[in-house]
């Protein structure tokens, strides 16, 4: 059984897009947060890899690179009891409130 992330040699591939995108602020944060938690020994690379590999195929393929990082980091932090989904939901609502309406 082959899983989605294990894509070496898949024959449905097209041309390689060489466009570089400028990192958004939240992507810089996602990158740094992930690294810091690794340096502090709170989680390791193989754990977040595993969480990404366990994502359903549609999510793995549709999320952007750093969205996958954040989704997998949340899975691992929830697993370790450092955050709960509900806490993150509440904090998102709080932030949305602070950021204001469109």
């Amino acid at each position: 059984m082959k899983r989605t992330h294990d894509m070496g040699g898949d024959t449905d591939a097209g041309a390689i897009d060489r466009t570089e995108h400028a990192m958004d602020d939240w992507e810089v944060l996602a990158d740094a947060l992930n690294q810091v938690l690794g340096v502090k020994g709170i989680k390791c690379t193989d754990e977040t890899r595993r969480a990404r590999e366990d994502m359903d195929s549609e999510a793995y393929l549709s999320l952007s690179y750093y969205e996958r990082w954040i989704a997998s980091l949340e899975t691992i932090l929830v697993e370790k009891g450092l955050v709960t989904r509900e806490e993150v939901d509440r904090k998102v609502a709080e932030l949305e409130n602070r950021w204001g309406e469109p």
Partner: peptide, 22 residues
């Protein structure tokens, strides 16, 4: 000032939320 936060994606918002909680 770089861009309206309410237009962030679901997971981008959760990145900020996790940062704040941690």
């Amino acid at each position: 000032e770089a861009g309206p936060r309410h237009e962030l994606s679901h997971w981008a918002k959760r990145a900020y939320a996790m940062r704040d909680i941690l």
